[in-house]
Each structure stands twice: as structure tokens, then as C-alpha cells.
């Protein structure tokens, strides 16, 4: 099966060269690589041209990753199409592993294991733990029940014809990958998670970038729940997974940020502090199983405290999203890049 890769890029001159090289060095190289230079001012397109790939440029900035990717869709002439972020590199066999999953005719989308490329700051470390935990445990369980919650936007492959039938990547929510995955599930199109296909994006390395990303993700999640909830109710497993994720995101955020501090003040005891990291041993189990084969045990143990910091910050952004999306009815529409 032949493949076209779409790389949406806006001012990615620092990273896009690595992404292109990583694609050209694949054991199953794509037939064509299209870089969508979405109004960059830093010479991103020149990097693509020097790399010998197709570079296209919309008349003006499309305003979102979804817009840039959908702009490139008419150029795709292969059976499969893959979207990859301009700051993401791949294991040399990643494309080959994803293509294999399309041997089953019912598979319309496939995604891989995501791990941050750089793990230095507290934010990158927190994200490393979050991904290692989720992709080792939750996502593999979701895949077994044939309902991965999201085919990750940073690295996913699609059957072109099915993607076109869905109108490409929609900009109606801020989480286009979730929107597309849930639309696929509702129409019976299969989605697969392939843990052997590993990708390495650059994750937000400071609070400003992480905040922009968490804000977009939180609003995007709520927008998708509002958009799809009726349809999701008829998709076994997915309906339960989404309900549980939504409940936890709201209730745990309220508990962490409001209830526990109040409890400490009211009871004049530090015991409620335990609740912030009481699940550390439980989280460690999938982490160790994911880390040992990757020889990342030390890095995992060192990064674990950062996860609890990120979880708290994530909770704050989630509550803000609930407040503005659902209570004030002021949806976030502007796509702010946060890596």
C-alpha cells in the first residue's frame, strides 16, 4: 500500500528538518511527503525544498493544524495518508508497523506510541510519565476493546478514501484528532493503536507553552463531548471510557484544587496532602512495565514527581475550560500553538 505524508508546519524551521530526515529513513518510505508551509516567516518551506519533498503554501495561514492538513488532502493520490507534526520524529520502523495494521479491511485509522523527544524540564518530565503510563496501560486496553479514545494528531495514518468521506480534519473543535476518531467510531470505521510504532514529538518545555497546549486540549475535549455525546452513547466501551474520563477530569480537579486545601484548613491537619500522590505506587506499576524494556527506569523514577505537578496544572486548566465552555458558553475558537 502506498502512502503520502502530510506535515503541517508554521514556523518550524528548528525541527522540521529532523522530521523530514526521519521520514526519508523509514524502512517503508512514503511515496510522497507534502509539507504544508502554513504562512511561515522563518524559512520552514525552504527546509522542505532542500530536503527534496513537495512544499505547498495556502494563500494565507489556515489558522489551525486541521486547516493545514485538510488543505493538503486534494494533493494526496495514495491509498493511505499520514499526518505527522513538524516537530515529531519516528522510529525507523514506525511507518512500516502502522501500514501493517491496514491489512485488515475494516481499519480506517492507526496511531502509535508517543514519547517526548526531550525530557529535561519539569513539564517535559511530567508529560513523559503521563504518556508512558497512558500508552502502556489505558491505550492498550482501549485498543483491545477496539476503541482507542484518540488516534493521536501528532502521528496517525488513515485510509484516504475514508478520511475524504469524513471531510478531512475538521476545524469545528480545537481537538481535531479526537473529533475524527470519535466520528470514525460512530460510523463503524476501525481505529487501531500500534504500540510498536513509536514517535517522538517535542513537548512543551515551559509553562507558557504547556499552558497553551493544556488549554487547547481541555477546551477541545469538552467541545468534542458536546458535539458527539449523543452519537457516543451508541458506541460500546467508548461511551464508558469518555464518561469516566470526563468525571475524573472534573471531580478530581475540584478535589485537588478546592476540596483538599479546604479540608486541610478546616481540619488543621496535613493528612489530606496524601491524596495528591496516594496513587503513586499504583501509577508506578504500568510505568515500570513500560520503562524497563526501554531502559528508562532511572529517568522514569526521576520524572515521577513532575507528573503530580503537571496533573495539578492540568486540573486548573480543565476547570477553566468547564467554566468558560459549559457554564459561560464562551467556546475557545482560536488555535494557539503550544507544540
Amino acid at each position: 500500500m502506498e502512502l503520502t505524508v502530510i506535515i503541517p508546519a508554521y514556523n518550524e524551521v528548528e525541527f522540521v528538518g529532523d522530521t523530514i530526515r526521519s521520514l526519508l529513513e523509514q524502512t517503508a518510505p512514503p511515496k510522497e511527503i507534502i509539507l504544508v508551509d502554513d504562512g511561515s516567516t522563518d524559512g520552514t518551506g525552504d527546509v522542505g525544498r532542500r530536503g527534496g519533498i513537495t512544499v505547498i503554501r495556502p494563500p494565507r495561514n489556515t489558522g489551525s493544524k486541521a486547516g493545514a492538513q485538510t488543505f493538503a488532502l486534494p494533493w494526496v493520490g495514495t491509498e493511505l495518508v499520514m499526518a505527522i507534526d513538524a516537530d515529531t520524529t519516528l522510529e525507523p520502523t514506525a511507518v512500516e508497523k502502522l501500514i501493517q495494521s491496514f491489512a485488515h479491511a475494516d481499519v480506517a485509522a492507526a496511531c502509535g506510541f508517543v514519547l517526548p523527544r526531550r525530557i529535561k524540564t519539569v513539564w517535559e518530565r511530567g508529560r513523559f510519565i503521563e504518556y508512558l503510563f497512558a500508552f502502556t496501560f489505558y491505550k492498550q486496553v482501549q485498543d483491545y476493546y477496539r476503541r482507542p479514545l484518540i488516534s493521536s494528531g501528532c502521528f496517525s495514518m488513515y485510509r484516504t478514501e475514508v478520511l475524504r468521506r469524513h471531510g478531512g480534519w475538521s476545524g469545528r473543535t480545537l481537538a481535531e484528532d479526537m473529533d475524527l476518531t470519535w466520528s470514525f467510531h460512530q460510523t463503524g470505521a476501525g481505529v487501531r493503536f500500534v504500540p510498536e510504532a513509536v514517535c517522538y514529538p517535542i513537548e512543551p518545555y515551559n509553562f507558557r507553552l504547556m499552558g497553551a497546549q493544556l488549554r487547547r486540549w481541555s477546551h477541545g475535549f469538552l467541545q468534542n463531548v458536546a458535539l458527539h455525546w449523543k452519537g457516543l452513547l451508541h458506541v460500546p466501551f467508548l461511551r464508558s471510557a469518555v464518561a469516566v474520563a470526563l468525571w475524573d477530569a472534573i471531580v478530581a480537579s475540584l478535589a485537588f484544587l478546592i476540596v483538599l486545601p479546604l479540608l486541610m484548613i478546616a481540619l488543621r491537619t496535613p493528612w489530606p496532602l496524601l491524596a495528591y500522590f496516594i496513587d503513586a505506587p499504583a501509577i508506578l506499576v504500568p510505568l515500570l512495565i513500560g520503562a524497563i524494556p526501554r531502559r528508562a527506569l532511572g529517568r522514569t523514577l526521576l520524572s515521577l514527581p513532575s507528573f503530580f505537578v503537571l496533573r495539578l496544572v492540568n486540573g486548573a486548566y480543565f476547570l477553566e475550560a468547564v467554566w468558560s465552555e459549559w457554564l459561560l458558553r464562551r467556546p475557545l475558537r482560536v488555535y494557539v500553538k503550544g507544540h
Binding site: E130, Y131, F133, A134, F137, Y138, V141, Y144, Y145, L149, I150, S152, G153, A175, D177, M178, W217, G220, F221, F237, S240, A241, V242, V244, A245, L246, W247, D248, A249, V251, A252, S253, D279, A282, I283, F307, R311, N314, G315, F318
Partner: peptide
Amino acid sequence: MNPGLPGTGIGGLFYILVALLMPLCE
């Protein structure tokens, strides 16, 4: 992206239960 807050609340129990059910499903 990753919705929710991994490791917290009922999500953990949900995934434990469905993982424990996997051998029966298999």
C-alpha cells in the same frame, strides 16, 4: 492528546476492571 487526569479516581478502577475482564473476552 490525553483527556482526563491519568491515575485519578474512577478511571483507574474502570481500566483495572476492564483489564481483568480481558482474559474472559479473549
